[in-house]
Design a protein around this nucleic acid. Structure first.
Length: 810
RNA sequence: GGGCGAGUGGUGGAAUGGUAGACACGUUGGACUCAAAAUCCAAUGCUGGCAACAGCGUGAGAGUUCAAGUCUCUCCUCGCCCACCA
């Protein structure tokens, strides 16, 4: 017997598997689609954290194939967008060349680990043959009015020199570079994602969607649906009115002023009537210069200016209240105006205190049935529901009742209506950068916006000398006259191409569909193939994509469903989010900290199989755990033991009952644990089996073969090597996954725990299924039990067959 | 401030309400060796004891139960996400 040398074994089988296409069993009847979130091929290459998810899907894919499924397990590259472009600028290489280089490096690194990826289906979002269809989907959206041009102020990153979507911000800062994001008015393309808000929300509750509650909750919060009422406050002595949105119309009798956002149109239309216009304009200018970050700074005191010379009229009691402009009210949410009820809203309360505005209580907590309006000082806003007071005919109602009745009254009087608002905004979809899909539209002076004809897709990204961003709000593409100036497809007159590009997240919105049919030239995916393979059965990736990729992709998928391009409403059935692998110092692995571990080194030192095993053995898959290279030693030792097992395997005789039972327990444990992503305990079960067999001097051939199959998803190379050493001509991955036999799992004797008052005193080994009388009599003979029973009466006996006997004494 | 999740040996972690610490790392002792590595054997939660053994023990406190790491309540700490959304 040779010694275990992973290097030669692994290279040999990787080549062989690729040659015979062992993973391409697509003709099988049952399908299983298991998908990884495809990576950005960054210049830094892989660190040991990246493959964790890929190994997990690979283990699952291999087991599913052994169980008879035709498994689709593809890999590709999400190579457009800022990370790739910034790397290219920094290293003075064209992004296209940099991406090619990085992809080659990533692929080489991945291939060493021995994945089941079907490289014939490899795709890259930057390939014109791919982004042709990204552009095509955009055009369909444009045709349905879901893509529109907007001039609203958007998030602008001064360092990346591009507009950003709300989803691209982290606490008011650019998610890429950490710069404080400014508000900048500019022309941009926006996708009407809010039109799908309700469906995106509702379908999260579909029982078929097996996602973690935390991700679903994050999406719910991000969509941020709230039901309320829009109420009209006429502006006294004018024809104007202010519409406000509120979820608490029950507090309207406590409204003591109205606030409009600095962006609100009312200010412009009433300019002539505002007596302190200078002051107001100064305030508006000041807040316009503020970033969202500064405007929403929580510690910041609220500021505002009263619009002198005008008042708003409360439709319920006719009361005239002052109007303020204040930047704590957001222009982009609801109507950009609110009714302020300081007694029952924390923000209004704070503002009212500062500007000495009246605070009027109109909701009493349930306990205080009587009005507490004479209370001298109110210390804080009472924001909960309660019983209405001082609210005219509505006094005495509960908040919920009042909301219904007041809304009904408003609707009847045509002074308001029910309204639903969302925190989620439409998706700012254009970027003023080079490295993205060109938006396939043409601007014609005569015809307006004209789509590029479908047969002319893709609109290829032209070669350009300088792909660095400009500061003009235009992408570098705007400087390429030859590319920009085109004939209008409609009138054949002079026209210009749209020069903005799509954001990084565009290509990943539908890539899972392309893997099904990657070379199709006529459609993004063949309908029959789509229907067979979709949805993705298991999708694995990081939790950081909760409110971006996963939301965007669901949005696109629903749109594709609506135009009958796909057959289902949701793309990803089961979603599993892996925990991070941290560096041994507990920080994230990063070049900056110099704590990166390269998988190549691990594979070279311990072998791919030991590396794969360790990543799965570290701990629960969803949990973040620090890397410890010592741990790989353990899984390598385990494989050495497995290697030595071949000396014990022979067909001359069967196994004893203990090993046979353990084998079936192991089949059950490994099968169930892989299905549930509990890889650590599955591996532990394999180790327990090997440790037990080591103590024997014989292992039956059938048990050995079964064990190899169980091990093969985790450690494919060594399993294949040992499998073929048995004389098998076909790959182990074309074998059949074992089933466990319930009868064999149950052993003949059981350990019964004997407790006295709940404390362990003895363990009895008895025949399985023994009755209480028998076990009790045996227990009473036990010396230790006797000591603890001495001088006491047995008051109660709890007996659970094959488990426990508890004697309660006193 | 809101939401979600987690606290178990020296370390990573295991445990359908039923033997807490499986499995692995590390450590200690021993075998093998001129020596080392590798490998093998043994021990390894804490306290007391030569030992048999006894007591204590899953962030803190209470409760339910014959029995709680697990269920309920209160509190503490940490992590992640969201955050002036009216």
């Amino acid at each position: 017997m040779k010694t275990y040398q992973p290097k030669s074994i692994e290279a040999k089988w990787q080549k062989e598997w690729e040659k015979i296409g062992v993973y391409r069993q697509y003709a099988r009847k049952k399908k299983f689609y298991v998908l990884d979130m495809f990576p950005y091929p960054s210049g830094a290459g892989l660190h040991v954290g990246h493959p964790k998810g890929y190994i997990a899907t690979d283990v699952l894919a291999r087991m599913k194939q052994l169980q008879g499924y035709g498994v689709l397990h593809p890999m590709g590259w999400d190579a457009f967008g800022l990370p790739a472009e910034q790397y290219a600028i920094k290293n003075k290489i064209h992004p296209e060349i940099a991406v090619k280089k990085n992809v080659a490096m990533f692929k080489k690194q991945l291939q060493k680990i021995g994945f089941t990826y079907d490289w014939e289906r490899e795709i890259s979002t930057t390939d014109p043959k791919y982004y042709k269809w990204t552009q095509w989907i955009f055009l369909q959206m444009w045709k349905k009015g879901l893509a529109y041009e907007s001039y609203e102020p958007i998030n602008w990153c001064p360092s990346c020199k591009t507009g950003l979507a709300n989803e691209d911000l982290e606490q008011g800062k650019c998610e890429r570079c950490g710069s404080i994001v400014e508000k900048r008015p500019m022309r941009q393309w926006v996708l009407r994602m809010t039109k799908y808000a309700d469906r995106l929300l509702k379908d999260l509750d579909s029982r078929k969607l097996d996602w973690s509650e935390s991700i679903k909750e994050q999406q719910r919060n991000w969509i941020g649906r709230s039901e309320g009422v829009e109420v009209t406050f006429p502006v006294a002595k004018t024809e104007e009115e202010i519409r406000v949105f509120t979820t608490r119309v029950d507090t309207i009798f406590g409204c003591t002023y109205v606030v409009v956002a600095p962006e609100h149109a009312l200010i412009r239309s009433l300019e002539s009537k505002i007596t302190n216009l200078g002051e107001v304009k100064k305030y508006i200018k000041k807040s316009a210069g503020k970033s969202d970050m500064e405007r929403t700074e929580l510690t910041k005191e609220k500021t505002g200016v009263k619009l002198e010379g005008m008042e708003a009229v409360n439709p319920f009691n006719g009361e005239k209240v002052p109007i303020f402009v204040a930047d704590y009210v957001l222009g982009a949410y609801g109507t950009g105006a609110v009714m302020a009820v300081p007694a029952h809203d924390e923000r209004d309360f704070e503002f009212a205190k500062k500007y000495y505005l009246p605070i009027r209580e109109v909701v009493a907590s349930g306990k205080q049935a009587v009005s507490n309006k004479y209370q001298e000082k109110i210390k804080e806003a009472f924001i909960e529901d309660g019983i209405l007071i001082d609210s005219g005919e509505f006094s005495g109602l509960t908040s919920a009742e009042a909301r219904d009745k007041m809304t009904a009254w408003l609707v009847k009087e045509k002074l308001g209506e029910k309204k639903v608002n969302y925190k989620m905004r439409d998706w700012t979809f254009s970027r003023q950068r080079y490295w993205g899909e060109p938006i396939p539209l043409i601007h014609c002076e005569k015809c307006g916006v004209v789509p590029v004809p479908e047969k002319e897709l893709p609109v290829k990204l032209p070669k350009v000398k300088s792909y660095e961003p400009t500061d003009t709000g235009e992408s570098p593409l705007a400087n390429i006259a030859k590319w920009v100036n085109v004939k209008c497809p409609k009138c054949k007159g002079q026209a210009k191409r749209e020069t903005n590009t799509m954001p990084q997240w565009a290509g990943s919105c539908w890539y899972y569909l392309r893997f099904i049919d990657p070379k199709n030239r006529k459609a993004l995916v063949d309908k029959k193939k789509e229907k067979k393979m979709m949805p993705v059965d298991v999708y694995v990736g990081g939790t950081e994509h909760a409110t971006r990729h996963l939301l965007y992709a669901r949005f696109w998928h629903k749109f594709l469903y609506d135009i009958r391009a796909v057959s289902g409403q949701e793309p990803f059935m089961k979603l599993v989010n892996q925990g991070l692998i941290l560096a041994s110092d507990g920080r994230k692995m990063s070049k900056r900290w110099g704590n990166v571990i390269n998988p190549d080194d691990m594979v070279a030192q311990f072998g791919a199989d030991a590396f794969r095993l360790y990543e799965m053995f570290m701990g629960p898959f969803v949990q973040s755990i620090a890397w410890n290279t010592d741990g790989v030693v353990g899984t390598r030792r385990f494989l050495e033991k497995v290697w030595k097992l071949q000396a014990k395997a022979s067909s001359t005789k069967g196994d004893n009952k203990v090993i046979e039972s353990l084998l079936h327990q192991t089949i059950k444990k490994v099968t169930e644990d892989i299905e549930e992503f509990k890889f650590n305990t599955a591996i532990s079960a394999l180790m327990i089996f090997v440790n037990a067999v080591e103590k024997e001097n014989h292992l039956s051939l059938i048990a050995y073969r079964t064990f190899l199959i169980l091990l093969s998803p985790f450690a494919p190379h060594i399993s294949e090597e040992l499998w073929r050493a048995l004389g098998n001509k076909r790959s182990i991955f074309l074998a059949e996954w074992p089933r466990w036999d319930k009868k064999k799992i149950v052993s003949e004797t059981m350990n019964i725990v004997v407790q006295v008052n709940g404390k362990l005193r003895a363990i009895l080994n008895v025949e399985a299924g023994s009755d209480e009388e028998f076990v009790k009599s045996l227990a009473l003979q036990d010396e230790k039990v006797k000591t603890h029973l001495a001088g006491k009466n047995i008051r109660k006996v709890i007996y659970i067959q094959d488990r426990i006997l508890n004697l309660v004494v006193g």
